[in-house]
């Protein structure tokens, strides 16, 4: 699945809590401003697509405009 399609899916199906500015794509991983929202998306993806989703703390860089708490990717089968 492509990022723009996945983002639309997440924002549509979790519209009460997840907005477009809550997460972005960075080098193949979804990167979340708030850990709490990352956990909501992880739960949604694992239940909806029967996949294993990994998360870890984000390494934040000084040249970024804002900080991110969590990054996420999918387990290879």
């Amino acid at each position: 699945m492509k990022y723009v399609t996945l983002k639309q899916d997440i924002c549509k199906n979790l519209s009460s809590t997840i907005q477009a500015e809550d997460f972005f794509l960075l080098e193949g991983k979804l990167i979340f401003v708030l850990h709490e929202k990352a956990m909501q998306v992880k739960d949604y993806l694992e239940k909806t697509y029967d996949i294993k989703v990994h998360t870890q703390l984000t390494r934040n860089w000084p040249h970024w405009d804002q900080e991110y708490e969590t990054e996420m990717w999918i387990q290879n089968k």
């Binding site: 699945m1 492509k2 990022y3 723009v4 399609t5 996945l6 794509l25 080098e27 193949g28 991983k29 979804l30 996949i51 990717w73 999918i74 387990q75 290879n76 089968k77």
Partner: peptide, 10 residues
């Protein structure tokens, strides 16, 4: 332009 998501099958 890359829409690749890590976890995509080989």
């Amino acid at each position: 332009s890359s829409q690749y998501i890590r976890g995509t099958d080989r």
